[in-house]
Every structure is written in C-alpha cells, then in structure tokens.
Computed example of a mutant assay.
Amino acid sequence: MKKIISAAILVAACVSAHAETFNFSYTFADGQAISGSLSGHLNGDLVESVSDVHINFGGVDFSGALFGASWSDAAVNWNSAAGPVVSTNAAKNNFIFADANPQTDYANVNNYFYFVNGSSVLGSEAFALNCHGNCDQLALDNPTGNATWSLVAAPVPEPTSIAMLMAGLGVVGAVSRRRRQA
C-alpha cells in the first residue's frame, strides 16, 4: 500500500513539474501582427526557462529552432547567456528570437522578432523581420498606445487531475486486493 501511495505522489510531482505553454501576440501600430507560443515557468509576471518557441509573422512560420537572448547595453549586443526576458507586462520585455545567433552568425539571420524596453542603445523598440524569399515583410515601431502585447497561459488539461485520478484508482485497487486476500 505504501508503495502505491508513494508512486502516486511521485507521478503527481513529476506531472506538475512540466513547463507551462504560453501564447503570445504583438500587434504593431501599423496593424501587422506576430504571434506564437513558448514554454516556461511563470514567476510573478516573468516567464523563466523559456524554450520551445514558435513564431508566425504575417501568416508565415519562422522555421527551425529559434535562438533566444536578451539585449545587453554593456556589451552592445545580444546576450545568450542571460536568456530572453519575456513578461506578461510589455514594459519588461527584453528578448530576441531568431533563426540564428545574431551575435555570432548575423549574416544567416533571416527571421527574427525582438522586443526591447529602456535600452540606452536601442531605446524601446519592437521589430520583426521574415525573409521568406525577398525580405519584404518587416515591421518596426516604438511600443505605443496603438501597439498591443499579450502573453497568456495556453489552455491545457490539468495534469494534477490526471495524477489524482491515477492515485485514486491505485488506492481502490489496493483496497480491493487486500479484501480479496483477507
């Protein structure tokens, strides 16, 4: 019985430790929109351990694994060691998601979306570029009242409900087995 309960607790802990999925969108002042999803853990209004980023700009998906970083005024470049800073509060965003590392492989960056606030070098700026052939799709603005940022948790089934169901079935099975043995 103790083994079954221990296993159920372990399963519940493992299932609830998975990252959340978030959907995001940014509509530029000119009406162009970029959207996508990412995984991470929400801590206050910041998403930590950002991974599995997918982006769509103007109906075209960015391809391949996307590099993520934050802007560093001190280095005057993108800092991959610090990772991207993504927030539910647009004023705290400091990130780039690109199809290549813009610090070391700039010539091969064809698709990217960056959103930086309060930089002494870049100021506050959001920029997207999607080169799916001729690099004519781009959008740039300083986030204003006309631009909108949204980052919300994607609706997913609650893994703790599944773990609770499994634990309950385990207990019922253990009780049934014990009654049969008695």
Rank of each mutant, 00 (worst) to 15 (best):
His54Gly: 11
Thr144Cys: 13
Phe22Gln: 03
Leu169Val: 11
Val175Pro: 10
Gly170Val: 04
Ala82Ser: 15
Ile4Cys: 12
Ile5Arg: 10
Asn89Gln: 13
Ala147Ile: 02
Gly170Ile: 08
Ala69Val: 03
Leu10Phe: 14
Val86Leu: 14
Ser87Met: 12
Asp52Arg: 10
Gly168Asn: 04
Ala75Ile: 07
Val85Tyr: 08
Ala19Gln: 07
Leu138Gln: 15
Asn43His: 07
Ser51Arg: 11
Val15Met: 15
Thr104Ala: 06
Gln32Val: 05
Ala126Val: 09
Ser70Met: 09
Ala17Asn: 10
Arg179Gly: 00
Asp73His: 03
Asn94Ala: 08
Gly118Glu: 06
Ala81Ser: 15
Gly170Leu: 09
Gly145Glu: 14
Glu48Cys: 02
Ala147Lys: 02
Asp136Gln: 15
Ala33Tyr: 00
Thr88Asp: 01
Ser124Met: 05
Val86Arg: 05
Ala153Pro: 08
Ala90Leu: 13
Ala167Cys: 08
Asn93Gly: 12
Gly168Leu: 12
Leu38Val: 03
Val60Trp: 01
Ser161Pro: 00
Met166Trp: 08
Phe95Asp: 10
Leu122Ala: 05
Asn110Gly: 12
Gln32Trp: 00
Tyr26Met: 07
Gly44Thr: 05
Ser16Tyr: 03
Asn111Thr: 10
Thr104His: 08
Leu46Met: 14
Thr104Ile: 06
Asn111Met: 10
Leu165Glu: 05
Thr160Met: 11
Leu129His: 11
His132Met: 03
Val60Ala: 13
Ser25Lys: 10
Ala69Asp: 01
Asn117His: 14
Cys135Lys: 09
Val53Leu: 03
Leu138His: 10
Ile55Val: 09
Asn110Trp: 02
Phe28Trp: 05
Leu42Cys: 04
Ser35Met: 03
Tyr114Pro: 02
Phe95His: 10
Phe127Glu: 13
Ser120Leu: 11
Leu122Thr: 06
Phe28Lys: 09
Met164Phe: 13
Ile4Gln: 13
Val116Ala: 05
Asn111Lys: 06
Ala128Arg: 01
Lys2Ile: 13
Phe97Glu: 08
His132Glu: 12
Val116Met: 06
Asp136Ile: 13
Ala17Arg: 00
Ala8Met: 05
Phe24Val: 06
Lys3Ile: 07
Ala7Asn: 11
Val175His: 07
Thr104Glu: 10
Phe97Gly: 12
Phe28Val: 08
Ser51His: 09
Gln103Thr: 15
Lys92His: 15
Asp61Thr: 01
Val53Arg: 00
Cys135Glu: 07
Ala7Tyr: 12
Asn110Arg: 11
Ser72Tyr: 00
Leu151Lys: 03
Phe113Arg: 03
Leu46Tyr: 07
Leu129Lys: 10
Ala182Pro: 00
Ser63Cys: 00
Asn101Asp: 15
Tyr112Val: 04
Ala29Met: 01
Asn94Met: 08
Val175Arg: 13
